[in-house]
Simulated assay, not measured.
Amino acid sequence: MSPAARPSFAIGTVKIRPGHAREMGLPITKLVTGAEVTLPVRVLHGRQDGPVVWLDAAIHGDEVVGVEVIRRVLATLSPRTLRGTLVALPIVNVHGFMSGDRYLPDRRDLNRSFPGSPRGSLAGRIAHLMMREVIDKCEVGIDLHTGSDRRTNLPQIRADLDDPRTRSLAEAFGAPVMLHAKLRDGSLRAAARERGATVLLFESGEAMRFDQWAIEAGVTGVLRVLAALDMIDPVADASPTQSLVSRRSGWVRAGRSGIVHLDATLGQRVEVGDRLGGLSDSFGKTLRLVRADRAGLVIGRTTAPLVNRGDALVHIADIEGAEPPGVPDHPDAAEAFDALDEIPVL
């Protein structure tokens, strides 16, 4: 198909011709100083027909891994060879990103504010803008996240694994594990699904950190999905590993307050009763051991050294079906997982 045969892509007040890329800012609001705040967007409108896909990051302002994932993905793509259209939003929660805060200035969680309203709260207005200008024009989306404050996550996809197309794209992403995750009211994933979009939520790494293994896993996974959608040619040496599947997970919590020393590492297989670490007082006296309450795979853990009774320590996912020995090879994260083992106190 010639470039002229494909219509331009309209977003905001801009139209992007086939074979071109464009950066813009969608107006959100003004600061008290009068400075305008805009939602940064980059559109790659390919010469040839194909799916319209969005990538977004930093819906929680302190989750910076996805920002770098999108930067690196865009650096590999050209609208002259892309089949379809890619809409990239590296920083959705602009206010939170500028202040290093998970939430908006009014303490609202943007990811509980979709689909939003043009006359609602700041969160609602941002959500509505994103739905109107981006989600409603796309058929597939990848929502990039990290663990919340002082938690780190194994690279993982959370999605509706009972939907055949969603599962197919989750498998194409090739994260070490994919979790069947219920939709949450107010989330981007739930609102986009209501509009007919297929959505993958990627979790990897820790807030306010550029964990290289988390970034590399995200970049490779996104490119695999774009290749599976035939938007780009297959990525060399990026064939997906077979993801483990989980439909249930839970956190092991602190039995009492103290200083936590965790031995459990991301990607580790555990059995019921396995030692995950211990809690001590300030003089080093052991107060209580931390043990696994289920068999499965460690997909998340706290990085906080001080914990109170009831705090979440280690996230373990039950693994569906027969469990092969070990964890699928994940070269992007292997060195980082080994390094975590060497840190005596987290």
Score class of each variant (00 low, 15 high):
117 S>C: 14
115 P>V: 12
119 R>K: 13
126 I>L: 07
130 M>L: 15
114 F>A: 10
108 R>G: 12
131 M>T: 13
100 G>K: 05
120 G>Q: 01
114 F>V: 12
123 A>L: 00
106 D>N: 13
120 G>A: 02
99 S>N: 12
107 R>S: 14
133 E>I: 08
111 N>M: 03
108 R>Y: 10
131 M>Q: 13
111 N>W: 02
123 A>P: 00
97 F>E: 04
111 N>S: 04
114 F>W: 05
123 A>D: 00
109 D>I: 11
104 L>A: 04
126 I>G: 05
106 D>W: 03
119 R>F: 07
129 L>Q: 09
118 P>Y: 01
107 R>V: 12
132 R>S: 15
107 R>W: 13
109 D>E: 07
122 L>E: 08
121 S>L: 01
103 Y>G: 08
101 D>S: 15
102 R>P: 01
130 M>C: 07
119 R>I: 10
107 R>L: 15
99 S>E: 15
99 S>M: 14
105 P>N: 08
125 R>W: 06
115 P>A: 14
117 S>F: 06
106 D>L: 07
105 P>R: 07
120 G>S: 01
117 S>Y: 05
134 V>H: 04
123 A>H: 00
126 I>R: 04
121 S>P: 00
115 P>G: 12
117 S>I: 11
117 S>P: 09
114 F>C: 12
108 R>Q: 15
131 M>P: 11
112 R>T: 10
114 F>N: 10
97 F>P: 02
107 R>Y: 14
102 R>D: 02
134 V>N: 10
103 Y>V: 14
100 G>R: 03
122 L>V: 11
132 R>W: 07
127 A>C: 09
128 H>Y: 07
119 R>P: 02
96 G>H: 09
124 G>T: 04
108 R>I: 08
105 P>G: 10
123 A>V: 01
132 R>A: 15
131 M>Y: 05
126 I>E: 05
105 P>S: 10
133 E>S: 08
114 F>H: 05
131 M>K: 11
96 G>S: 12
103 Y>E: 13
134 V>D: 08
129 L>G: 08
115 P>C: 12
104 L>M: 03
132 R>G: 10
123 A>F: 00
125 R>D: 07
122 L>H: 03
106 D>C: 07
123 A>C: 00
122 L>S: 05
111 N>H: 03
97 F>M: 09
132 R>Q: 15
110 L>E: 01
105 P>W: 06
133 E>W: 03
120 G>M: 01
121 S>A: 01
122 L>C: 09
122 L>N: 06
133 E>V: 06
98 M>W: 10
112 R>K: 11
119 R>C: 07
107 R>D: 14
125 R>M: 10
101 D>T: 14
103 Y>D: 14
130 M>E: 11
120 G>E: 01
120 G>T: 02
131 M>N: 11
133 E>T: 06
99 S>K: 14
102 R>W: 01
134 V>K: 09
126 I>S: 07
107 R>G: 11
106 D>T: 09
109 D>V: 11
129 L>W: 02
128 H>D: 13
127 A>H: 04
100 G>T: 09
99 S>W: 13
133 E>G: 08
107 R>H: 15
104 L>H: 02
130 M>H: 08
129 L>Y: 03
129 L>T: 13
127 A>R: 05
